[in-house]
Simulated assay, not measured.
Amino acid sequence: MPDHLSQAVQPAGTWAEATDSCTLTYDDRFLRRKVLHSDGGVSILLDLPKTTSLDHGDALLLEDGRLVEVIAAEEDLLRVSGDNLARLAWHIGNRHTPCQIAADHLLIQNDPVIGHMLEHLGATLDPVSAPFTPEGGAYGHGRTHSHEHGHTAHDH
């Protein structure tokens, strides 16, 4: 039996202080109902009304009012760079691959098939370990490979 229940998420930037944290990968931050284990060893039954994409810096609101901060875990990623970064980003997006965008590089999950395609397009790939917080797509935060769009007022 979990130690605590959370049925609500406080978006990043809307809360002040957390008493614990929960470090999750990108894939693990897409959920609705699941038992999570905080970094402090507390088990939490997360039971949200709909499937949600948790962002780094969000907080789980526990039934007693305490907050548990969501931390993006370090993951094995590919750092993508090249002369035509916009073209590389287009090909990544065309395959609905989550992508974190920086001024001089892109980060994607370490997918050998996508990596091979990018190398054929002239990309330089470097394996890295870093937190993964990809772009949320046209509707803001959330996943772009489904119709879940996280913390937006836009409903389909």
Rank of each mutant, 00 (worst) to 15 (best):
H4E: 03
Q10V: 06
T14K: 00
A16Y: 01
A16V: 15
T23Q: 00
T25H: 08
D27M: 01
D28C: 08
F30L: 08
F30D: 11
S38I: 12
G40V: 08
G40F: 11
V42E: 10
S43N: 02
I44L: 09
L45F: 08
L46P: 01
D47M: 12
L48D: 11
P49I: 05
P49G: 14
T52V: 11
S53P: 01
L54H: 07
D58T: 11
L60M: 14
L61W: 07
V68D: 13
V70G: 05
I71D: 08
E75C: 02
D76K: 10
L77I: 08
R79T: 03
R79I: 06
V80N: 14
N84E: 13
L85Y: 09
A86G: 04
L88I: 15
A89N: 07
I92T: 05
G93I: 06
H96T: 09
T97C: 13
P98R: 09
C99S: 09
C99W: 01
H105M: 15
L106S: 11
L106N: 09
D111G: 07
P112H: 05
V113H: 07
V113E: 12
I114F: 10
G115F: 00
H116S: 13
M117I: 13
L118F: 05
H120P: 02
H120Y: 01
L121D: 11
A123W: 04
A123S: 15
D126M: 04
S129F: 09
S129N: 11
A130N: 03
P131Q: 09
E135W: 00
G137C: 04
A138D: 15
G140Y: 07
R143Q: 12
H145I: 09
S146I: 09
S146V: 04
E148C: 03
E148A: 02
H149K: 09
G150I: 05
G150L: 04
H151K: 03
